[in-house]
Amino acid sequence: MATGVEDPSRAQVGTKTLRQDRWWLYPLQIGIILAFFVVYATVRIFMRDYYWADAEHYLTPLYSPCLSDSCVPGSAHLGTPLPELPFFIPLPFITFFVLAGFRGTCYYYRKAGYRSFFLAPAACAVPEPHKTYTGESKFPLNTLNYHRYFFYGALLFVLLNVYDGLLAFQGPDGGFGMGLGTLIMWVNIAMLFAYTLSCHACRHIVGGRLRSFSQHPMRYRYWTWVSRLNAKHGTYAMISLFTVILTDAYIMSVSAGWFDDPRFF
């Protein structure tokens, strides 16, 4: 029996949607961007090359931290507690798990993914193609509720990126120096902070879970700060996606020798 907008109790309009605007454009654009990032990141983490620019001390955020004996000399800032890894396990598999998990369970990316990949729905008031729907109430999608744990992990990894960024102030001669790559890395760090701290789970943890703001004035203040950032969470999510790609591509180019890093001092 027909259901949804074609349910017999509802007005029979004869078409699934009467929307005349280009409602398909947004999910298409976002879908292409997300698919590109997934393909790019997958290729890069399996590439195992050009992730560390030795002279400039640049480590790409996709490989930070590099913890295996398979890491190239100099790139393992935290040592190598892990043994050599076979080719089918990416060197940064922990980083990938946490950061992909953070973005995959993020409320913004959930919206984008449901719209672009699952068409549930592709756009508002446009019928979805699925016969049944249980949303995030059943396994496996109810595991998206663990977003806050990925948030804790992602925050830790941004702090590691800060450490990498500080090391990038080391010049080729070993003294203090700064190149274009250092600047790119710090822009990326700023965007990653904006994205991570504007997270809905962060907003809840710092103060949103309270029932009385007046009894917790400091947490209320933190909540107002995060709320201000949170209003642009989707924007930061997309900008930081591009800055991660750009930073990685830049460091890959410098590491491979395709490009000389301009030095400021």
């Binding site: 919206k111 449901y114 995030e136």
Partner: peptide, 10 residues
């Protein structure tokens, strides 16, 4: 049934 909401913001 708040779990059914997939926060697509319509």
């Amino acid at each position: 049934g708040i779990g059914m909401c997939n926060i697509t913001k319509c």
